[in-house]
């Protein structure tokens, strides 16, 4: 574990806590894409299939459980919580994410560490995570004003993978024969997708104005 990876995991955890806070505090999920939340639930379930078979550390197992449980809890809230579900932007959150799931799985069948169920699903989860934010970014563009907590959620969610890229560079330089081509390539694509969001987020922070993504 190095400082970049710890910062990445803590930033990821912070983003999830911010989203939980927003939904709990405002009893509303306006501006949040349920499709992105469902994609993240799929990402975590298929990435951590080894949750019960490979024990790496208490930290690793604990974080996996937190990620799976929180993503499922958020999806449950947005679908079934009597108050929260009413604020879901159903008519704006229309990204046809089936293609993202299909393309990620197809790519995982071609490019994986090993041709086994666990490894193909692991690669699938890596590719799917790279594009999982798309429905959320589209929703932000469509829904005019973005509330602060939702903006912060997306910001930290994008920042966590940038820390992971620093972690991979650090490990590549310090550990012999360390390679993470699948996660690394996918992580760069994932972080690049946030580029314009980061730009408008920085502008809104600099001008102390409301975050606004151009439609």
């Amino acid at each position: 574990m190095n400082v970049f990876r710890l910062a990445g995991d803590m930033t990821h955890l912070l983003s999830i806590l911010l989203l939980l806070l927003k939904i709990y505090a405002t009893k509303s999920c306006s501006g949040v894409s349920r499709k992105t939340q469902e994609l993240y639930a799929i990402v975590f379930i298929f990435r951590y299939l080894d949750l019960f078979t490979d024990f790496i550390s208490v930290y690793n197992t604990f974080m996996k459980v937190v990620f799976i449980a929180s993503s499922l809890a958020i999806v449950w809230c947005m679908r079934f919580h009597p108050v929260v579900r009413r604020s879901y932007d159903r008519e704006l959150d229309t990204f046809r994410y089936f293609f993202l799931v299909g393309a990620s799985f197809a790519l995982a069948l071609i490019w994986h560490e090993k041709f086994s169920v666990q490894e193909v699903f692991w690669a699938f989860s890596i590719y799917l995570e790279a594009v999982a934010i798309l429905p959320q970014l589209v929703l932000l563009q469509r829904s005019g004003n973005v509330d602060n907590l939702t903006g912060q959620y997306v910001f930290f969610l994008g920042a966590y993978r940038a820390f992971y890229i620093l972690n991979w560079i650090y490990r590549y330089l310090t550990e012999p024969r360390f390679t993470r081509w699948i996660a690394g390539t996918s992580g760069v694509v994932q972080t690049a997708l946030y580029a314009d969001f980061f730009y408008y987020y920085f502008i809104s922070w600099k001008n102390n104005s409301k975050l606004k993504l151009p439609a």
Binding site: M63, E113, K114
Partner: peptide, 10 residues
């Protein structure tokens, strides 16, 4: 035997 692709990261 081929080392399993170690996924020590989250």
């Amino acid at each position: 035997v081929e080392l399993p692709a170690n996924h020590d990261e989250l």
